Simulated assay, not measured.
Amino acid sequence: MKRREFIASAAALLVSPRRSWAQGTPRRIGVFGFLDPIAREAWRSGLREKGWIEGKNLLIEYRYAETPDRVPTLVAELMALTPDLVVASGPQAAVALKSATTTIPIVFVAVADPVGIGFVQSLSRPGGNMTGLTTVVPGNFIGKQIEILRELVPGASKIALLVNRDNPMQRQILADEVPRTARELSIALLMVEATTAEELDTAFASAAAQRADAMVVFGDALTVRQAPRVVALAAEHHLPAIHLFRILADGALVIYGPEIPDLFRRAGGYVDKILKGIKPSDLPVEQPTKFELVINLKTAKALGLIVPPSLLARADEVIE
């Protein structure tokens, strides 16, 4: 080969990857966990804002395990695709991905206390291969929900907590925040558990049998997927209940929690930065900036409750 031809061939090899990128070679990422339709559209919107179009310059592999026994298989499928990064929707998904890789970047969304659960070293300096967005500002969130319930149900002294012990974040809250809240508010907090859709019926029946005055429904994939059932059971057992996620507002008495679609939209920013070369350890974990208080007056009337004007004045939305 002539010297000039050799130089030309070598130059072509050097610039080829860059030219391929400029022409829009798609990057591949994975998403593990449940996304309701509203969250999924917000997620896609956040990506579009950063110039990433699903199916064009970004290939996204979605996996969601309906039952825990499917988790290892589906996580292994994602890892086998060697994605540029993976997104975890909720703490169960984040735990599964964390166990599967220490090298592929992980962006978690909707994890209440990632420091307490051991995902990151601190919010400002995550360390490792994980970063993302929390659902609450840890410390006294359950207390705030209970205070709202007691405004709606004056004199409530016994409140049931609907929990899913398969959710590692909820186990953390039960061990730490719940006992402290019970002491500070001088209130009895009863745990009723549901890890499957079928167990929801038993959990609500147990709360009613123990004469709970109201209920805090802990938010996770189970209660979101089963939103109509959760709302119907609360009505059936005449239990005033407060929920975390806006998706339950159609029929639920009261919602107080972060604007989940906003978290998924903001996750697009993490994807953009990591795909452009920034390490997860250098991206601080972000907390919610938008919280919603939604009150359903129709449900309040059905439960025989009078919503105080002070609470209505604070509400972001009142459903009539």
Rank of each mutant, 00 (worst) to 15 (best):
L59P: 00
T101K: 09
L74D: 05
G118Q: 10
L81P: 03
G118R: 05
T67I: 11
A100D: 11
G55F: 03
R70F: 08
L58H: 03
Q92A: 13
R70V: 05
V95L: 06
W52R: 14
A80Y: 02
A96R: 02
P91D: 13
L85P: 10
P91C: 11
D69L: 09
E77C: 06
E54T: 13
D69Q: 13
E66I: 05
V86T: 13
P83V: 05
L85A: 14
V115P: 04
P91I: 12
I117L: 15
G116V: 09
S89W: 03
L97Y: 05
A110L: 14
V107T: 05
T101M: 07
L58S: 07
T73G: 08
E66D: 14
E77F: 02
A88Y: 01
V107A: 02
W52N: 13
I60E: 12
V71I: 15
P72V: 10
K56E: 14
V87T: 04
A76P: 04
E54I: 15
D69I: 12
L85R: 10
K56F: 02
F108M: 08
D113E: 11
S89M: 09
Q92E: 15
F108H: 02
E54W: 08
A93W: 05
F108C: 02
L59H: 14
P91F: 03
I106L: 05
R70Y: 03
V95D: 01
E54R: 10
L85F: 10
E61C: 06
L85K: 11
V87F: 01
A100G: 13
E61H: 15
D69Y: 11
T103N: 09
I53M: 13
D84Q: 15
A65W: 03
A94L: 08
T101Q: 08
P83C: 10
V95A: 03
E66R: 13
L78K: 00
A110R: 01
A93I: 07
A65D: 07
V115S: 07
D113P: 10
A88E: 01
T82C: 07
D84E: 14
M79I: 15
K56V: 13
D84L: 08
F108V: 02
E61S: 13
T103P: 04
L85D: 10
E54Q: 14
E54C: 09
V107D: 01
A112W: 00
Q92I: 15
A112C: 03
I60L: 10
P91M: 11
G90E: 09
R70I: 00
A96E: 02
N57Q: 11
V86G: 02
T101S: 15
A112V: 13
A65K: 04
V95S: 02
F108Q: 02
I104W: 05
E77V: 06
S99I: 01
